[in-house]
Design a protein around this nucleic acid. Sequence first.
DNA 1: CGTCTGTATGCCTTGACAGGCATATTCCGT
DNA 2: ACGGAATATGCCTGTCAAGGCATACAGACG
Lengths: 103, 103
Amino acid sequence: MPVNAFAVLAEPARRRILDELRVSDRSVGELVAALTISQPAVSKHLKVLREAGFVSSRVAAQHRIYRVEPAQFAAIDEWLAPYRLLWTKHLDKLARHLDETEQ
Amino acid sequence: MPVNAFAVLAEPARRRILDELRVSDRSVGELVAALTISQPAVSKHLKVLREAGFVSSRVAAQHRIYRVEPAQFAAIDEWLAPYRLLWTKHLDKLARHLDETEQ
DNA sequence: CGTCTGTATGCCTTGACAGGCATATTCCGT
DNA sequence: ACGGAATATGCCTGTCAAGGCATACAGACG
């Protein structure tokens, strides 16, 4: 994880942006239309997302098209991995308990 | 996700706490010893983690023992799931590219 | 029942950050 | 080169949260 990926994702507006971009690439203007905040605010969030590696942008005429960069999500997933063991273990235990009590 | 789970995880000290608890349950005092912040600070972080459902506590004499509560991590995982598709697709594409160019 | 240990809470200060507005910058078409 | 559209940046303000310290609270034990 580069710089506090969780802090980057903590901002609801940024998660909304990612949700939009997950569907398809979008220009800044399209994102502004989709969210409810001002264009400067969107640009700032995009900057944060970009510097954290969650998105990247390409230039198309006077537009900037943003897209999701999957690698950072993989980083989050890695952080999550050891805890995943915990909760699958938990589920196992639950399942066993149900097995034992179901007859 | 209950209340901005990402904001809860954004705090480095809280992730350190979770890392400790992942190994085994711990009392507040043990956590204080493991981290480098004051006891009140640890108690406050524990409160945040508890209210967000990441940990739970039991009473043992005058100690309070905290442990990880796996369910919340599953919630994060769910949020991540659609993005996981994205990056596995990405890996697929990469693999295919390597296949095509490897001979 | 006083005292000590372990933990939680209140108050206060400080720093970080989000959002709005104005403005700079970039690139297009003419 | 000039005007305009699309996006980025600077400045300012308000809000919120973290951490420290002092203190309150709870249980154990003499």
